[in-house]
């Protein structure tokens, strides 16, 4: 067995220090060590985006990132989107538009959409489709998901 390595990171604004095994992914550590089960484990090959989180402002598939790689980084998961107990406008738009069917892909969809709107507050339909191309939805609720992102982008309160 290889030794564990100490890492420090900021998760949803909170400083965390922990020891991780080098072969454990960021997804493993979020779910198993930090009890943040929003990011989902699904394909484990970078295709479905269910494990999407934001690292230093950019989305990654956390199944393809080793936990040791994010030492010193700032990580945002779906648990970090709500503020003071209320959903973010983007999350609210997902609810209002019925974008969540079974809901399994939704944390990943939300993180991709959140990152998109941070850099491009007024995306076109094409921008949204391209921005979410790495997130599959097996319930095929794509129309509602795209509608929700466009609706959130329109909302002045973002």
């Amino acid at each position: 067995m290889s030794d564990t390595i100490p890492i420090q990171l900021t998760v949803n604004g909170r400083q965390r220090s922990l020891r991780v095994a080098p072969h454990h992914t960021l997804l493993d550590v979020l779910r198993d060590d930090l009890d943040l089960t929003g990011a989902k484990e699904c394909c484990l090959v970078g295709e479905c985006g269910a494990c999407t989180v934001i690292v230093d402002g950019r989305t990654v598939d956390s199944c393809l990132v080793l936990a040791v790689e994010v030492d010193g980084a700032s990580v945002t998961t779906v648990e970090g989107l709500a503020r003071d107990g209320s959903l973010s406008p983007l999350q609210q738009a997902f609810l209002d538009r019925g974008a969540a069917q079974c809901g399994y892909c939704i944390p990943g969809q939300l993180m991709s959409a959140h990152a998109l709107l941070e850099t491009n507050p007024h995306p076109s339909l094409d921008d949204v489709q391209e921005g979410l191309a790495g997130n599959l939805c097996r319930c095929a609720g794509y129309q509602q998901i795209v509608d929700a992102v466009l609706a959130a982008a329109d909302g002045a309160d973002r």
């Binding site: 970078g46 985006g49 999407t52 950019r58 989305t59 990654v60 598939d61 393809l64 990132v65 991709s112 990152a115 998109l116 391209e130 921005g131 191309a133 790495g134 997130n135």
Partner: peptide, 9 residues
């Protein structure tokens, strides 16, 4: 190449 998530890495 890939998706946004892939291109970010």
């Amino acid at each position: 190449i890939g998706s946004v998530q892939i291109r970010n890495r």
